[in-house]
């Protein structure tokens, strides 16, 4: 684990130098702040529902970009020999992958959580009565879980394909899933992207906390499966 810690510090530093850290952390925060400027009644029956809808769009976009960045990062690390540099020092390729997952995951989780604070402020500013925090918080938590799965999608694709193709494909998958979760009605059964789906339709949710918890579980399970696949792909590839 000490090696993963060392690699994570490297990953944060590399993200900082290349401005990726600002994008991953900043996009959902800016999205959350932007929600304050949008009247919530344009989207939802309640102030909280409206703010959550706009924040679902912001978070969906931020998660898509993060998936693309994760893909281009691991593809570039392979191409320019950084993974090889680690591998010849007996660092497991899966440890390199895990360090990037944790770095991206931590940043996007902080970004989404802080951004959700902005959306919450927008909701309580416009609400006549104090809204219930728990459903919103549960939906944000499930969105973070989907963000982790999206990072794992990016890492898997970046472990297999070249930089450009991996970036386009990962971003497209993230955007497609977000568009479906926002555009379609609230799903009857929980899905890995259920967090965004719930945020976009918070007013219509009968049991939002239960739905969010089940969606989170599915998203985290998906993230784990994708990471295992990515590790296997990276292990089999020539560096």
């Amino acid at each position: 684990m000490s090696r993963v810690g060392t690699l994570m510090r490297m990953a944060f530093h590399e993200m900082w130098i290349t401005f990726r850290l600002i994008l991953v952390l900043g996009l959902p925060m800016i999205g959350g702040i932007a929600v304050i400027a949008i009247p919530p009644e344009f989207a939802g029956a309640t102030a909280l529902g409206g703010a959550a809808f706009w924040y679902a769009i912001a978070a969906g976009a931020a998660i898509s970009v993060t998936a693309g960045l994760a893909a281009v990062t691991i593809a570039n690390e392979r191409r320019r020999g950084a993974v090889a540099w680690m591998a010849v020092r007996a660092v497991a390729r899966s440890a390199v992958l895990l360090s990037w997952f944790l770095a991206f995951g931590l940043l996007v989780a902080i970004g989404i959580t802080v951004g959700a604070g902005g959306a919450w402020l927008a909701a309580i500013t416009h609400a006549e009565a104090p809204p219930d925090l728990l459903p919103f918080a549960a939906a944000v938590g499930a969105t973070v879980a989907w963000a982790l799965a999206a990072v794992a999608v990016g890492l898997l694709i970046g472990s297999v394909l070249g930089s450009l193709l991996a970036t386009i494909l990962s971003t497209a998958i993230g955007a497609g899933v977000a568009a479906a979760a926002i555009g379609l009605a609230l799903s009857r059964t929980p899905l890995p992207s259920g967090g965004i789906n719930l945020l976009a339709h918070l007013d219509e949710a009968g049991r939002p906390v239960s739905f969010a918890l089940q969606s989170s579980g599915l998203a985290l399970g998906l993230a784990a499966v994708l990471l295992v696949l990515a590790a296997a792909a990276l292990e089999r590839s020539d560096l």
Binding site: R80, A82, A84, R89
Partner: peptide, 14 residues
């Protein structure tokens, strides 16, 4: 890690 070293055509460092 300590007993084998490798240097390739690419430096591979940041």
């Amino acid at each position: 890690a300590r007993r084998v070293g490798y240097v390739g055509p690419q430096a591979g460092i940041y």
